[in-house]
Design a binder for these strands. Structure first.
Lengths: 241, 241
DNA sequence: AGAAAAATGCGTAAATATTACACAAATTTA
DNA sequence: TAAATTTGTGTAATATTTACGCATTTTTCT
């Protein structure tokens, strides 16, 4: 344990943290990973004990190559979820002078998208939980605000990025994809126009799963055609809706 | 002057700065405001002396309400340009562990748009200068990279925001507006289609400047119709190009 | 001075994209 | 067992985007 008052500077320095908004999708609802604050953390972080919060923590000045590394490291430590640094997208800085009661702390918020079905098992259930969007409890610090901003960023990004790639399992149905878009964009689409548009981009391939279609009520399975998607993206497209 | 080694913390803290990319437009070219490092600054900031850099400086932990306040304060101190905190848009965080040779410094980059004709006189010519885009010298620290990212952010934002409002003088011509769009988006548009699209949005009003039009080679003057623009923006539009 | 080139405004036809909408079949719900 | 819901498919009407011609005046070139 570090000795108290070990590090001195000529001018005041703020503490810097990275916070993570991790979005998942279970085929029906958008979800967010939250942690319960308090329990087994060291003394210096005992603010808002017992409340729910975004996973995140302090920049390690000597070890974290970038602030995204902080995000990845802290997410792992606090929730068990191991993501690549590249999976984190920066949302923005939250720097209000009073946002942390202990000292001046500015945080760089990030978001990440995960395939819920593949990572849910990794989530340390003692400390962390997945909450449905629209069923989020009040959060510690200014994390409510951070969550709103992160969501609106996701909402913007969905126009240009294949968020489906990251949130959906390998195989998925068109209704699932549409529901995901509707959840994020908070609108409803005409089923047929949605399908036409998606097919027009040619980034979906129908999956032959052996079972001869039993009937029209059993939706077809698709997977993303990564090659076509990448080509499309390089040429600068808009996955416009 | 603060005594050396006055501030102590239990854990290491990074220094935090705000950097500013200030864009202007002179009717022909996009420009950026840069400062010459070195001269009359205190001892602690004598890295990259003599090189050009983005204006910016350290967060005042006790006084700066947010990091955007840092940006506004430092821009004023270093260039004489006095902008409102609201004029700064966050670009992102640059946190590479070695980006500053002195100590760990993470910076939050911002950009701002100004009417060059109205602020050029305020610019302190001893310390700062306006550089044409495409004629930017090598910059200190990782400021080259910051500049590129800021520009690409501006390029994105122009689809949804009226950057013309901020960069152009009160009155301007359609060719000027088009040239501005072309400079930022780095493409060429068909003159007639550009005009049609702009007029279709109904955010331009033709200015009657008394002088009966002398000929088609004298472009008409317009100003922005702020009311219509605001209404359009509230309803969620895309100033699509 | 005169000729050539470039810039401006205006408008329209063709191509492309978006929107609205109906039906048949199978599954789920009541 | 009937009713309601869900899925797939396709087309006509509407709106948007793109490509382009012409008359005129200023600027540039010789």
């Amino acid at each position: 344990m570090a000795k108290k008052g070990q590090y001195t500077y000529e001018y005041q320095h703020p503490a810097v943290t990275a916070d993570c908004v991790v979005f998942g999708y279970d085929g029906k609802e958008l979800k967010v990973l939250l942690i319960k604050r308090g329990a087994e953390k060291e003394a210096s972080t005992t603010a808002y004990v017992g409340e729910w919060a975004l996973p995140g923590g302090f920049l390690d000045v000597e070890k974290d190559k970038t602030i995204a590394h902080t995000a990845a490291r802290e997410l792992k430590e606090e929730t068990g979820l191991k993501l690549s640094v590249k999976d984190f997208k920066e949302v923005g800085t939250f720097s209000d002078i009073k946002r942390d009661p202990r000292e001046r702390v500015i945080t760089i918020a990030h978001y990440a998208l995960v395939k819920l079905s593949e990572v849910q098992a990794d989530t340390d259930a003692d400390k962390a939980d997945w909450f449905s969007w629209g069923d989020i409890p009040h959060l510690a610090f200014d994390h409510d605000k951070i969550l709103r901003v992160a969501f609106s960023r996701l909402k913007q990004d969905i126009h240009f990025e294949p968020v489906g790639f990251d949130l959906l399992p390998e195989m998925f149905t068109l209704p699932q994809l549409q529901n995901l878009y509707e959840s994020i964009l908070e609108v409803k689409f005409d089923r047929r126009n949605f399908a036409n548009k998606m097919k027009h981009f040619k980034i979906l391939s129908e999956v032959e799963d052996g079972t001869p279609r039993k009937g029209t009520r059993t939706p077809l399975k698709y997977r993303f055609d990564k090659d076509n998607y990448d080509r499309l993206k390089r040429n600068g497209f808009q996955l416009e809706f």
